[in-house]
Design a protein around this nucleic acid. Sequence first.
DNA 1: TAGTGGTCTAGACCACGGT
DNA 2: CCGTGGTCTAGACCACTAG
Lengths: 253, 253
Amino acid sequence: MAHFFVTFLVHNRESGALNKTKKYEQIQTYFKKRIQRAEIPINAYLPSEHDLCEQFSATRTTVRKALDELLKEGYIEKEHGRGSRVIERRKSLGLPTIKGFSGSTDHEIDTEVTQPPQIADWDPRIAFPLSEDEKKSPCVYFQRVRRIDGRPIILENTWYSANALCLIPANDFVEGSFFKTLSQKFHVEVKGVEQEIRSELATTAVAQRLEVKVGLAILFLSVRFRTSDPKLNLYGSWYCNTSAYPIVSSYFS
Amino acid sequence: MAHFFVTFLVHNRESGALNKTKKYEQIQTYFKKRIQRAEIPINAYLPSEHDLCEQFSATRTTVRKALDELLKEGYIEKEHGRGSRVIERRKSLGLPTIKGFSGSTDHEIDTEVTQPPQIADWDPRIAFPLSEDEKKSPCVYFQRVRRIDGRPIILENTWYSANALCLIPANDFVEGSFFKTLSQKFHVEVKGVEQEIRSELATTAVAQRLEVKVGLAILFLSVRFRTSDPKLNLYGSWYCNTSAYPIVSSYFS
DNA sequence: TAGTGGTCTAGACCACGGT
DNA sequence: CCGTGGTCTAGACCACTAG
């Protein structure tokens, strides 16, 4: 049961200046960042609550509050009698994924960047009102096609405000994932998703990318991801061929 | 700031018998049930944490734990400096709803029961594996059509195991809502949803109910709701006309 | 049996909302 | 100003896991 020991120095109430940082938040963000940076690997155990009390000069109540927050955010799991283990963060916050995408290894999935990140215009098909900031800002755009067993299943267009986040070249994506890049390189977390879903017939342009006949029934999703950076929203227009692989989504309280 | 006072009698550790009920759970379920039964109206304030400590002979820690659970479950909201207020429970746990369905009053929505609750066969289109219990059990089925401004938008088929829940006549639905009925009359809560979504062309039967042409692009959802009763799942097959009103869903952490 | 997380007590001080 | 919820301390005992 390998543990990671910490030398932690935070001046909680330094020199009478207004320091409103809560102790539990300090502990929480300390581990959050270490987990995001993968300094603490997945499946590793955090120090015991008792040890954390000593290391952070805090009581169980405070330490447990910090861990409970990390639990709520999906960074750790608690195992009674064993410890708190770092887990793979549930990435799909109710976001639709291809059936079999996560967890199952039945299908080989790969992603092809069909339009590299570039400055472009906002898509008129985005179903959400842009903020004033976003309207005025230039816009970063990229397009990807997701394939299962070689067959193109989702055509994914993404937009975001260049004022809120720089243009990230496709080669800099962490393990090819845009979300992992946001988390690990920019410490930005996806906080929520909103989706608008329609059923449509494939247009020529879409049919070409998805390699289907024009007129096939296609799922169109307009998605907005909200992030921990209030200025940064990610907008997506997804065209999905659901004839072979349905879109699945789930939510549990 | 009207409060509701409570006379509460629970023998926490009666006569040495094994009574493992946690105190915070007792407080939690006490208020949960009262809220479900609408004995405490929406927007009313619970007694202050200090008062609750006295009434339940507990400490702040315990009382706060109970309230935090109610908060997580969406029954109350806490207002710093004011109190804990009962709120309308978010009913759509990530469940897709018609745009404008909740909150907005732009559209008039009504629900017509097109097939009253009856014993029937399980639908072969259900995308989730049935438990052994469910397979053996007879099945309750009903069908509803949801209309916006008079136009049929969703054709909703519902199935559940008759072993887990009795057949409820449509007239007994609380305010016409099946979920409200479950919560208020049976104290069963919906805990999670899983969905499988496909895009299809309308068949004759569906087109008839939705009053559209055969061959229109239609959204098909196979839905499973999990409830607080582990034996009771609700299965749905929804056919949606998204040409005028898209389906929306959202999730925030 | 030793170590872990889960529950609980009995206090304290602070920040916020309304009077 | 008082009452509210938010944070925190310093302990205690219990339930679970594992050697």
